[in-house]
Design a protein around this nucleic acid. Sequence first.
DNA 1: TACTATTTAATTTTT
DNA 2: TTAAATAGTA
Length: 719
Amino acid sequence: MDVTPILESLNDAQRQAVTASAEPTLVIAGAGSGKTRVLVHRAAWLIDVEGVSPQGLLAVTFTNKAAAEMRGRIEALLGMPVNHLWIGTFHGLAHRLLRRHWREAGLPQSFQIIDSDDQLRLIKRLLKNLEIDDSRWVPREIQYFINAQKDEGLRPAHLVDEGDPNRRQMIALYGAYEEVCDRGGLVDFAELLLRAHELWRDNDELLAHYQRRFSHLLVDEFQDTNAIQYAWLRLLAGKEGVPFVVGDDDQSIYRWRGARVEHIHQFQKDFPGTAVVKLEQNYRSTGTILKAANAVIANNNSRLGKNLWTDGAEGEAIKVYAAYNERDEADFVIGRLRDWIDQGNLRADAAILYRSNAQSRVLEEGLINARIPYRVYGGLRFFERAEIKDALAYLRLIANRDDDTSFERIVNRPTRGIGARTVELMRSYARANSCTLWRAAGAIASDELNARAANAVLAFLNLVERLAREVANLDLPEQIDHVIHGSGLVDFFKKDKGEKGETRVENLLELVSAGRSFEPDPAAEMLPLDEFLAHAALEAGEGQADAWEDCVQLMTMHSAKGLEFPLVFMSGMEDGLFPHQRSIADPNGLEEERRLCYVGITRAKQTLYVTYAEQRRLHGMDNFSQPSRFISEIPQDFVEEVRPRVKVSRPLHAPRHSMASSAGDELGIRLGQRVRHGKFGDGVILNCEGQGAHARVEVNFETAGTKWLVLSYANLDLM
DNA sequence: TACTATTTAATTTTT
DNA sequence: TTAAATAGTA
């Protein structure tokens, strides 16, 4: 066997990982160290050299994109298709299992997947049903609570209220939510994982079967696994399975979503004798960028410890620009982009990163003015658009009449005279008889409703039944086509004036083409329609539409993870924005922000700009801000200040305290500080500006409202 | 039922 | 500021 093609392009550490013997292996892979490459080559090694059957391999990723990429690269390396190799996201694989073993999992065969938007609607409806005040019990928080419990593998029965009435209510709502889901055959994302875990946990034979089948497990982005995903992996690995996991503790940025870096430590305990391989050689960035990144992340405690290095060039210094305000910041970025483009570089090789989405606005305005094409990552995906979800709801109702979420979404869309009152009656009937809305609608129409409402309801029920019948023997794209027209959705959106309506209709038609290009898996043993609906929920569809154009990339630091660009701007680098205000007080939160910063820095291959604004308009208010503490964590030797201000009253690298806003901090005045004024009474400092005798503060007084006061005259007492 | 005024709150996001 | 949700009005 000639192993050259699999090994020749690897460095020592990578080779060590790829050729590791059949024992648990933990690969700590720094940014840009060839993580995916190691996974791909490992798979090829196992199949080609160790003689493991592709069926004996399970590869897990977090995104569909990563899964697709991995399959593509493995096939390219092996020079053959590997159809029987299971590669997918945790959710995708769990879904696959549940479809195969729906009976054992206690699900109806036609169970539907709901996305987080559906989930939120369902919770809101639930609150209405139970007549619970949704300002006291915020739907979003309930959703968060439920998902967090599921992520930890906890059912309502496992939870105790600890005498906390708040918690008791949350648990009760979780229980009620579960009932609704069970009744409607609905499965949310977290439920996919939890069910799949329980399926194995409670079915020894089934588990044994899969344990026998999958001798080798490959896991990508291991630092992002949550409790239930990890438990699922451990079950599958059992005593014999060989897990090979790859991750980077320094790039764990999803703790708030349930991800637990601790699994990296836990792994070594749970699998004694784990071989640990560190990949520290970086093939992406210049020496300067790497040293800066290392220096920043070194401020975190509880790291496994890792230092990126390169045998490439030192490269240019990191440029820091102190903008006057956010407009100036955008102008600066755009000026540098202009230069970049004028030098003949690709626009697509430049990225502007920011902490939160709202920051893109100013940048976008600037780019539009400068006529530089750009693309904003994130945002609404194809299958999340309202009109698409409407169409999908019809399809889902056709597939499963008990799907209340879909029922409620389209019962009066297009409008057909079924108003809030009628729906309310259906709800209460459904509640009283614990049945689904579909059944309730039928029952109510025949007695409780007046003639007009009853007719409207019957018309709707008949419409869905008729569509179901007409569509039964059609192919998927024809089914979709028939439903979007037959339901009246197309005509409904056509009436919408202006471009909005047009694009909606276009999107609906695009859904038909999506159905046409969808390739059902013959092994899935599902109706193509069911499979398509699952696909729509699990793979929301990247920003489709616009064909590829060479344009500047705008995205949050989070969505930049895994990407790389020759030219990177990290914008809005101010304390309060990044690190974000809501994370600043909590040491764990701050460390996660710092990891995010590390991710941002390591996206840059050649050139990195770091920019901040001294003054920024946020929520319609001008605020003064200090440069992000992360900037001062970059050693000065690697930094070059761009166009330093004439009056350097605040040297960039001075200790933090002296950078505090200029207005009278010798008096100990800080934003948020409570003060008392002789005439206006008590208040809170919102803002400050100016220096010395001119220093002014903005104070929000409890009784007198918001005022600007000159410090030297105001005689404020600190409280 | 649809449109308009008012209120409220404001990270990060994949599945 | 602004987007979304709610309340009020035609």
